[in-house]
Simulated assay, not measured.
Amino acid sequence: MKIVEKSKELNALISGYKKDGLIVGFVPTMGALHKGHLSLVDEASKQSDVVIVSIFVNPNQFNNPNDLDKYPRTIDQDREMLEQTKCAILYYPSVEEVYPEEDKRIFDFGQLDKVMEGQFRPGHFNGVAQVVSRFFDLINPDKAFFGEKDFQQLAIIKKMTKLLGYEIKIVPCAIIRESDGLAMSSRNMLLTDEYRSEAPIIAQKLFESKNLLSTKNIKEVINFVTDEINKSGILEVEYFEIVDGDTLQPVDNWGDSDFVVGCIAVFADKVRLIDNLIYKKLA
């Protein structure tokens, strides 16, 4: 695995790959890697000839400066983990390398970024689009791999790819969970033992709610999940919404959409955890 910090060196390597007709797969990350990230790298290696992984904590997507400061940075451990995979290049740029000039672009995602995460984290998805499009320009991958845990982000990336006319295949990858069901996240390492022991309730109640579809309406399922998680006494649901998986707009009835997803954000003290569950998806 080669570690690259400069865009010019990266471009030269990628030009060689492209000249040889190789398929380039890209996995963007913010580091603090875990098995969920490694599953993306594994999938990329199956679908690509060359895998490039970026580690970059993007300041433009943090609306809270404290979150940016607290975000875990574990580059030495990350490098060791990637060396055990089929990653060919670790791209580890500085802020100045990614943003040689201030990125003032404003993206119009319609209603996609106005709900759920967008409602509680204003500007977050614009920052995500800025950095991902910047990486797409630098790397020009054939395929890019994103986890379904960040369900709304995935929808935003798909929309951005269309808006900017990239001929890049966006590949969604399934959520990877801990043995107790908690969705893997870099933020999990910030949880105290007390909160870590309670956090699996989020996934437990989501999975339990899937058994209620034949007897409960959407509002009742939302209330069930919210109330059951809040009963823990230390977890606090910020939102739980059941939406159309393409538009991310709320659905009122199970029959209103062929693609129905429940998306949730929960505070475990000051650590914010997100998860989701697909209730219905017709091919």
Score class of each variant (00 low, 15 high):
Ile23Pro: 11
Gly25Ser: 15
Thr29Asp: 00
Met30Ala: 11
Leu33Gly: 01
Ser39Gln: 13
Leu40Tyr: 08
Asp42Cys: 14
Asp42Arg: 15
Ser45Gln: 10
Gln47Val: 03
Ser48Arg: 09
Asp49Cys: 06
Asp49Ser: 07
Val50Ser: 12
Asn60Lys: 15
Gln61His: 11
Asn63Asp: 13
Asn64Val: 09
Asn66Val: 09
Asn66Gln: 14
Leu68Ile: 04
Lys70Asp: 10
Lys70Gly: 01
Lys70Asn: 13
Tyr71Phe: 09
Pro72Gly: 03
Pro72Thr: 02
Asp76His: 06
Gln77Pro: 02
Asp78Phe: 03
Glu80His: 00
Met81Lys: 14
Thr85Leu: 04
Lys86Pro: 14
Cys87Gly: 09
Ala88Ile: 00
Leu90Glu: 00
Leu90Trp: 00
Tyr92Gly: 01
Tyr92Arg: 02
Pro93Gln: 05
Ser94Trp: 03
Ser94Glu: 06
Glu96Leu: 01
Glu97Ile: 03
Tyr99Val: 08
Glu101Trp: 02
Asp103Arg: 05
Arg105Ile: 14
Ile106Asp: 02
Asp108Phe: 05
Phe109Ser: 06
Asp113Leu: 08
Lys114Cys: 05
Glu117Leu: 10
Gly118Ser: 12
Gln119Asp: 05
Arg121Phe: 04
Pro122His: 01
His124Leu: 14
Phe125Thr: 11
Val128His: 13
Val128Asn: 13
Val128Leu: 12
Val128Lys: 11
